[in-house]
Design a protein around this nucleic acid. Structure first.
Lengths: 213, 213
DNA sequence: TGTACATCAGTGAACGCGCGTTCACTGATGTAC
DNA sequence: TGTACATCAGTGAACGCGCGTTCACTGATGTAC
């Protein structure tokens, strides 16, 4: 299927240290180092030199694998989108009821942002439409969201063109919860970030097709 | 009232150039320069040297007004919170109907994020609880949100303890819409970012107290 | 199986640059008399 | 009103530093014979 997948999957458990002249999997090690630096210091909070140091390699070595600093960051975003799509897909596919699938999707979204803050930061560090980003990968998760919502609307005999706006609302809520949670703004809420998100998504869903109160 | 207010209000139209040895209002000029740099290049995307250059002053001059780079950024966040609170307050106070007030608040939120991306970036560049940030100022807007929601719940004879969770959902949605909009992710939606936000906020409100569908 | 050789991943020294910060200074401003 | 002086905002040169990037190189690896 995806040629990049195995390489990504094994990249994280790359043995650090005790290597000879050749690193073995420097590309993956640099991507991982950058991801971790982004997680710790935010977007723009990494340097090529830092990433090389973290991978245990000279500052010039990255140039064998990436044309420049930007290309390395883009690679992190790429892998992020791919991993994100997989996580969302896996979480959703465990459920038959589309409403449960949607809730699982929302939980997986927040879970990804929390456990992979580096990937998440890289994914949103480039404006939409930026050439080198895998739109298909990103759109895959969004399309899954649309189709899940469409199923729910169909069950309730509501017009399916409501799915698009609903998807953007739910995505916006998810992104908002994830980013506010990341900087501690939801900490003193009575509800957990997960509850805020899942309940909110369900509320947005429930209101669809309803008269505007 | 607020001693800083006039200074903030006039800071932007500071005449650039044609000054003598003394700048006149360097502090404000540096804050504005930093705000603009943040808007153009994102958080961490500014340097003290850049800000000084933009204000037409030597690289050492900022140290007369700020202890270091971080303090300058914090000052931008501070002014951002204050201006933000004012804009939200003004927008809300024009409406008697609390539902209209809430919609106006949502529109003002997005409007602020769009017209003041520099302030907005600075405001969310520090984790919640960061000492030098004006919690009162920030909480002022949030409290206004809570009280507006509480009014709406009261009108509908719903328990007012629902206001907190509802406020966090609406804030998360607002932040999500604002940040996704800023990087172009809502551009190809059938609805405008404003519609996504206002309709979404109203939907969250409508679902409150409703049975979970 | 062993040897010669091409390949190319990683080295380390070097570069020019712009950064944050310090320092002794200078000169505009405002106030005391 | 005029002068002397204290204040302090902004200067400009200097510092040490780490960055991104380049380059000729080195040495591990794998392949052809």
């Amino acid at each position: 299927m995806d040629k990049r997948a195995p390489h990504i999957a094994t990249a994280r458990e790359q043995p650090i240290g005790k290597r000879g002249y050749h690193h073995g999997n420097l590309r993956a090690a640099l991507v991982n180092a950058t991801r971790d630096l982004l997680a710790a210091r935010g977007p723009q909070g990494f340097t090529l030199a830092d990433a090389a140091r973290k991978a245990g390699v000279s500052a010039a070595a990255p140039y064998r694998h990436f044309t420049d600093r930007d290309a390395l960051m883009r690679a992190v975003a790429n892998e992020g989108f791919i991993l994100f799509g997989k996580r969302i897909f896996t979480a959703t596919s465990e459920h038959c009821d589309p409403r449960e699938a949607l809730a699982a999707m929302a939980r997986a979204y927040l879970g990804f942002a929390r456990t992979e803050p580096g990937y998440y930061a890289a994914m949103f560090a480039f404006p939409k439409g930026d050439e080198a980003l895998p739109d298909e990968e990103h759109d895959a998760a969004f399309k899954l969201l649309i189709s899940t919502i469409t199923s729910i609307l169909a069950e309730r005999r509501l017009p399916e063109q409501a799915a698009g706006p609903l998807a953007f609302r739910i995505w916006s809520l998810s992104h908002g919860v994830a980013t506010l949670d990341a900087i501690g703004h939801l900490e003193y809420s009575a509800m957990s970030a997960e509850q805020i998100l899942v309940d909110g998504a369900m509320a947005l869903l429930a209101a669809a097709g309803q008269p505007p109160e």
